[in-house]
């Protein structure tokens, strides 16, 4: 028991140090690293509490997905565009202080009301063992008692995904590029300069040349003389197919 307690305090200490690092670091990537450290230690604490499923999910979801995305976005964004973290803004500091104190009060109230050990729920070691382990028990509870909550969460996440896709729709880079391409084509061959000649409706049949299926579902044209396909390139007709 003493070893467990010792390990717990060690993990808790690192978790808190990591959390402090999140706030203190000037570099947002360093903040993210601190957060990961904190999450991993919390996961280890779950393990001590014999909640191995929760621990692994904590690692997969928070350390493995959420923070990776945070780092991803941070790396994509230009450093100048990041918000100022450490400026002296009295309003922000005050808001943070109030919120922090509120959280502290809430947690204190909870501890004061129920004690450090909390109130034991219906699940004890024996009942968990009867079901067949922590993971199984958690699954049963989640998909029976909390079914509505699960469904609502799923719906919320779906809405968030759709919203994110709608918001992040690339502003038509391709359209801007298409405009640029048209200007770029310097036509010496056409007196009007930039106009692209319209392709003819039909091309003359290959005279001596032949069409060969070259693979990949692509035909190529084999020209035997230099004056085939000179009126119009071989291109248009096959493009249309």
């Amino acid at each position: 028991m003493t070893v467990q307690v010792l390990v717990f305090w060690l993990l808790a200490l690192v978790a808190i140090l990591g959390a402090l690092g999140v706030v203190a670091a000037r570099n947002p990537i360093h903040s993210a690293i601190g957060l990961v450290l904190s999450f991993l230690n919390v996961a280890a604490i779950y393990l001590i509490a014999r909640a191995e499923f929760l621990a692994v999910v904590q690692v997969i979801v928070y350390a493995g997905a959420v923070i990776v995305l945070v780092v991803f976005v941070t790396m994509l964004v230009h450093p100048d565009d990041l918000p100022e973290f450490h400026g002296r803004r009295p309003l922000r500091i005050a808001t943070g202080l109030v919120l922090g104190l509120a959280l502290l009060a809430e947690v204190s109230a909870a501890i004061l009301a129920h004690g450090l050990r909390g109130t034991p729920g219906p699940w004890t070691d024996d009942t968990i063992a009867a079901v067949g382990g922590n993971t199984r028990a958690l699954g049963q509870v989640l998909y029976s008692d909390f079914m509505l909550a699960i469904q609502l969460t799923a719906l919320l996440l779906l809405a968030a995904t759709i919203g994110a896709i709608a918001l992040a729709r690339p502003e038509a880079v391709s359209e801007r590029l298409a405009a640029a391409r048209r200007v770029m084509t310097i036509s010496l061959a056409h007196p009007r300069g930039l106009d692209q000649p319209a392709l003819p409706a039909a091309l003359p049949e290959p005279q001596n040349g032949r069409v060969k299926e070259a693979g990949g579902g692509r035909p190529i044209v084999l020209a035997r003389t230099a004056d085939e396909f000179t009126e119009q390139p071989a291109w248009g007709e096959w493009r249309a197919r």
Binding site: R210, R218, I220, A223, A226, F229, A234, W235, G236, W238
Partner: peptide, 30 residues
């Protein structure tokens, strides 16, 4: 590759390319 039929060997034959039977491949999609 863009389908334009221009090959110096055919258009302005040099050496003895005009005696040789060969074909010039042209692409269709560029």
């Amino acid at each position: 590759g863009s389908g334009v039929n221009y090959d110096v060997r055919k258009a302005m034959p040099y050496l003895l390319y005009d005696r040789i039977d060969f074909e010039v491949p042209l692409g269709t999609h560029g």
